[in-house]
Design a protein around this nucleic acid. Sequence first.
DNA 1: TGACATTTGTCCGTATGTATA
DNA 2: CTATACATACGGACAAATGTC
Lengths: 227, 227
Amino acid sequence: MAKYIEIAQQLITMIEAGEYRPWGVLEGELYLTRLFSASRVTIRKALVLLKDKGYIHSRQGSGYYVNPPEFYKEQHLATLSDRYAHVNLSSTVLEFDTVDPTDELKVQFRLFDGQQLYHYRRIRLVDDVPVALEETWMPIHLFQNFCEADLYGSVMKYIEDHHYMISHDFKKIQAVQLHGETARHLRKEEHSLSLQIIHKVYLLKSVLAQYTIETLSDNQLNALSIR
Amino acid sequence: MAKYIEIAQQLITMIEAGEYRPWGVLEGELYLTRLFSASRVTIRKALVLLKDKGYIHSRQGSGYYVNPPEFYKEQHLATLSDRYAHVNLSSTVLEFDTVDPTDELKVQFRLFDGQQLYHYRRIRLVDDVPVALEETWMPIHLFQNFCEADLYGSVMKYIEDHHYMISHDFKKIQAVQLHGETARHLRKEEHSLSLQIIHKVYLLKSVLAQYTIETLSDNQLNALSIR
DNA sequence: TGACATTTGTCCGTATGTATA
DNA sequence: CTATACATACGGACAAATGTC
C-alpha cells in the first residue's frame, strides 16, 4: 500500500480514537514529516485525503484543524454496505430467479433478443431491524455463476471480485408511498411516506451491470457538503 | 490564481466544448507539460481536480480518458444556486420579517432570551417555472443590515461576502406530501409527493448561520458517485 | 511466454509565495 | 516587522501497470 495512504489511515485512527479535540490543531506539516519519516509532499497527500473525507480542514498560514465527529460520521450517499460498514448488516432473500427483460430494461442493459436477467428481492437488516428493501436486475451474460448464496454479502464486492471495474453509480432519489407487501416487509404503516433510491451501477465503457430499486424504511437520508 | 487551477479550467473548457470524444484519450502528462509550460506535478494537480469533478478518469500504464457529459453535468447535492448556476434563476419573495424563535430554533441557533431571527419564504424559479419553495431563518445578530433586496440573489454568496466563512452544510432529505398553499405555489396537485431538503448551514466553530426548509417541485433528485 | 517501451503512480528534495499570528 | 505554517511550483527518480511485439 502507498505510504501516503498508510499515513492517512494512522491519522484517521488517532482522530477517531479521540486523541485530538474537535476544532483543535493538528501538528504542522514539518512535525509530521519527522513523525512519519516522510517528505512534505507525501504528508500533504495524506492530509488532502483527510480533508476530502471530512476529518480536517486547513487555513493557509495558520494550520490544520480537526473537525468534530459529525463531519466524518455522516452518511454520504454511499451504497448500503458502505453506509452500514460498521454495523451488523444481514439480508433476507425473498426471491431469486432469472427473468426476461421488460422493454425498458432491455434498452437500459442493451440486451439482444433472448438474453435474460438475474432478478432478486431481498430485505436488508441492521441488527435484525429492516432498513431497506432491494429489487435488483443483473445481466446473466456478465455473471455466469451468480447464485443465491452471493446475496447474503455485498453484491458490489462480488462484482469487483470477479474482475470487473465499477465505474460509477447513478442515483435517482424520489418520494414514495409504501403499501401492501412492501410496507409489511419494512414494518411500516400502509400509505406511510418514504424514500426510494434507484441505482444504476455502471462498469467501464457505459456497461450497465446492475439496476436496483432500493426502498428505505426511514423517511430520511443525510448528506453533508463541506466548503 | 494558481497555475494548476488555470490549467484545469482551460482543460474543462475544452472538454465542455466537445473537443474530446467521450471515452476518448486525453493527451498524456508529458505532452501537457510542454503544452502549458508547467512541471509534471502541476499538471497532475490539475488532472486530480478534473478527476474529482468527474471530467476524466485514468488508468496506470494506460492514460487519461475523457468521461461522457452525464458524469459532470449531474446535479450533485449542491445548493440551489449551484445546481442551477448555468440557467436563469430568479426569486419571488412571499414573506420577509423578523420573528421570535421557536424552542427548537432557539436551541439550534444557541440564542439568548430576546434574540430574534430573520424569517423569509421565497419561490425559486428557473425560466419562470417554480422549482422550489424555501423557508429560511437566520439570526439577526450575525447579519445586521440584511434586507429584502438581498433575497433576489444568492444568500449563500451574501453570507460569504460579509466576511463569514461557510464551513459546511448538513442536509436531511425526506419525502413529503404537498398541500394547500405550498402545492399551489409549486403548481402541483394537492397530495402529490415530493422531496424536502432541510439545510443547516454552519460557519466555522459550529455557528449555525441559516436554517432552511427547501421543498422541491420535482419529486426527483439526482446524485452520482464515482469509484 | 518473455522482453521492452510507454504511461501513470508514488516519493523525495528544494525553492518561493502568501496568509496568519 | 518577523517568525510560522500552509500553498504552489520545479526537477529528478523509481515503481507498477499496461500494451505491443
